[in-house]
Write a protein that binds this DNA or RNA. Structure first.
Lengths: 187, 187
DNA sequence: GCTTGTCAACTAAAAAGTTAGTTGTAAAAT
DNA sequence: ATTTTACAACTAACTTTTTAGTTGACAAGC
């Protein structure tokens, strides 16, 4: 039997990511994570102190990866929206984990990486508004919230609407990109 | 001790609504609901079969009430968005319960009231597009998804953005109404 | 007295977390 | 080069805590 702590940790993190994305913090089962990783349960407590701490590790890793993946471009917000949409479609776990986090950790410590990334985006937006590249009808934080909300359109859709939602991913993407274009348009 | 089955049920439903909104299905605790309602735990099982069934009851009641409260007006989508926003701000539990439901009940039975209400909205939207009242760049379902997403802008905001979010509710409302106005504008 | 509402105490099962002991590995000692 | 030693990786079984759900006794109103 080979022994490889790093490999074991990776297996656990992968399994934990799937489990938390599917069931949330309260719904996740330590035994299920261990079984699905093919690793002994005690290893979880050896490498990650507790269930809560395991979730934090998973969430931080996911968030960092997600932030790096999608580059912000204040000169092309519709393009940014499209890339963000692609990222969410390719990694639906990201959206679910973030939603669980917001629901189950209403007072979680703000992640430094996210704070920094948002500050940078707000700063760029402020600059673009000042320079006249973007209209001044919305504040920077308002642009950011609106773009994010529009990108999440198909995720926040109620299940009852499900069957009517366009099957074609390209179409769903085009709707979002076009909507953002209209939000930032000069009259 | 006074005996009033209806009163007891109401107390339990109120407590259960708060509990499920705060902690979700997996995170909710039957003992906490009973304690917060000031009612014995066994009453829950007497009036509502199980934890799952209690959640369904809470969710159906909340959904029906929420649907009735906000009237749809295809001739004034920005106004509808504003009223929906007000409803969500006044009853934040509604948004949380719906989100929990989407996460924890991915294959829940579609609620008849919601299905009917959505069908009616889609039908009206189709009519408005055909009549030229609304632009034809988006399908009915796309309008609905976009409007809902925009209304939820401040709810889907990541916590790290929290401090930057406008404190003024009227301003947050105005942003949403204006955004919807732009989405339905003719060029 | 019979039905229905209420309650405290109980049960069974599930879940998180722990422990005592085993095994592989790699470096030090021979 | 082999053996020894030390430690990290690992395991199975265990303990403790939590939680959904139950029961049987008692009380209130008809």
């Amino acid at each position: 039997m080979i022994r490889d702590a790093e490999r074991t940790k990776k297996l656990l993190l992968k399994a934990a990511t799937d489990e938390f994305a599917a069931y949330g913090i309260a719904g996740a089962r330590i035994d299920r994570i261990a079984a699905s990783a093919g690793v002994n349960k005690a290893m979880i407590y050896s490498y990650f102190e507790s269930k809560d701490n395991l979730f934090d590790t998973v969430f931080n890793a996911m968030t960092s990866a997600s932030l790096e993946q999608v580059v912000f471009d204040v000169a092309d917000l519709p393009g940014y929206a499209g890339r963000l949409f692609d990222s969410f479609e390719d990694n639906p776990d990201t959206v679910r984990l973030t939603t669980w986090y917001q629901l189950e950790r209403p007072h979680g410590t703000p992640l430094h990486a996210v704070v920094a990334s948002n500050a940078a985006k707000l700063h760029e937006l402020r600059g673009a508004i000042a320079a006249g590249t973007l209209p001044d009808r919305f504040e920077p934080v308002e642009f950011l919230a609106l773009v994010r909300a529009v990108v999440l359109s198909w995720s926040t859709t109620v299940p009852e609407l499900g069957p009517a939602v366009p099957k074609d991913r390209a179409r769903r993407r085009a709707v979002i990109v076009d909507a953002v274009r209209r939000l930032i348009a000069f009259d």
